[in-house]
Write a protein that binds this DNA or RNA. Structure first.
Lengths: 242, 242
DNA sequence: AACGGTTTGTAACAGTCTGTAACAACAATC
DNA sequence: GATTGTTGTTACAGACTGTTACAAACCGTT
């Protein structure tokens, strides 16, 4: 990573954040949660897993720094990246109700997630009605987000998918207080391609074309958005992630 | 529908069913729920909506008979079928936490869903801890199911997607007590194609080819599975829907 | 039984995306 | 600083799916 790049969206300041950004921005903060649940800070090196499919389900995780990918696995080895998680995102909720985690969650860079042991969370839910609602809302939001990507994957051509993806990344960085016009992608072309149901060469070509159209400027993982409206037009009036 | 067809998987008998088939088959039955929540039976003609995106979110629904499709809509008119719902499936949970429903749910045939007013459900959750867990589990299962389809859509070619879809339909009919080897598809080719992120002609071609391979026998919406293992091989060792 | 409208099937053609391959840029290691 | 491996880019040929068009089957209605 170049010196310039590292200044764009580096490790965040320790600014406090609400639990479960995904939901509607309510008031339950991490300190209230800590009074009921023993929180352990877990650091992960790039490529290391928070958990893997099949491991015993024991905790939820809250991303504190860095970024992760969630991967679905098939018996025959097929693999699919189903999403990327950043600061404030909840991890592990998809496995609630199971004895074992149903997917892999892997750090894309050196990252940190806070471990919330599930039995403690369950007990805390009885005393903090807000927490229960928050988790339910986060799950519902996750369903909506996944479906909104299904809409995107089912109706947009390759180049438009890539454009929609960039807009989503930009919006998420903006939400975290970073620049929406200049950022570093944390995932490889292969992960991006898997998520977008494309091949990595196709993603490269699409990015190059968006670059040639002067809608963005891209060099490897560094992206500058030059024409947001142009990008929105290509993506089809953008995402409707709720 | 032919006389033969109607005998295959017609309106179900009024066999009692557990709440939220999607989850892990627990014990909370519909009678326990009725003691806390006023249940209204809602009938829908084919093509009629249970609710539409934008309508005020007021209730969850439990499919009692028939079948529905869930549709995601984009601002610019793009549309994507994101799933099909049958007896025992919960509808509306994806909109929990919102003021308005986020998608359309439309009956594929004459169907019936039981309305569970959400405020009453919320109150009931305080008295029936099982209910709260059930809804949470159903939501988590919904996330897993959607991701498992993302895996399928992202990694399988057209013909294999259709095969995987047929296996899923067969499994769901089997779960409801119908034949897994002989059933009637309730959705049009267009809905099926939308769900599988294909065009309806491609679905037609794939079905014709599976028919020519003697893996299935298909005539319009009537399907006979002749070679389950063959179908599984084509689909890539089947789905891992949990 | 005849009538439109819808749904489904088939075909030829065109287009996008993919697969392969070679190369370039970068990172990590020695 | 050279080397090795990973990641990303680009070009070209080829396969699959999408497009378009039309015909047949089915449905509900008259």
């Amino acid at each position: 990573m170049t010196a310039l790049a590292s200044a764009v969206n580096a490790t965040p300041t320790a600014k406090p954040y609400a639990l479960l950004t995904l939901a509607d921005g309510g008031q339950l903060d991490i300190e209230a949660l800590r009074r009921h649940v023993p929180v352990r800070r877990c650091k992960h090196a790039a490529g290391q897993g928070v958990y893997r499919a099949g491991q015993a389900f024991e905790a939820l995780y809250l991303v504190h720094a860095g970024s992760y990918k969630t991967c679905e696995l098939a018996d025959d080895g097929r693999e699919q990246v189903t999403g990327f998680r950043m600061r404030g995102d909840l991890i592990g909720a998809e496995s609630i109700g199971l004895k074992n985690y149903s997917c892999d969650v892997i750090a894309l860079e050196d990252s940190e997630a806070w471990e919330l042991p599930y039995p403690a969370v369950l007990r805390a839910c009885l005393q903090l009605p807000e927490l229960q609602a928050r988790i339910t809302h986060a799950l519902a939001a996750e369903v909506r987000r996944d479906r909104s990507w299904m809409l995107m994957l089912g109706t947009l051509a390759a180049e438009r998918r890539v454009a929609a993806f960039l807009l989503d990344v930009a919006a998420r960085y903006a939400h975290m207080g970073y620049s929406a016009k200049h950022f570093i992608l944390r995932m490889s072309r292969i992960d991006m391609a898997s998520f977008l149901a494309l091949k990595h060469e196709t993603v490269s070509r699409a990015l190059s074309r968006l670059n040639d159209l002067s809608v963005i400027s891209v060099q490897r993982r560094e992206v500058r958005v030059l024409d947001v409206d142009g990008l929105r037009t290509i993506a089809g009036s953008g995402m409707a992630v709720s």
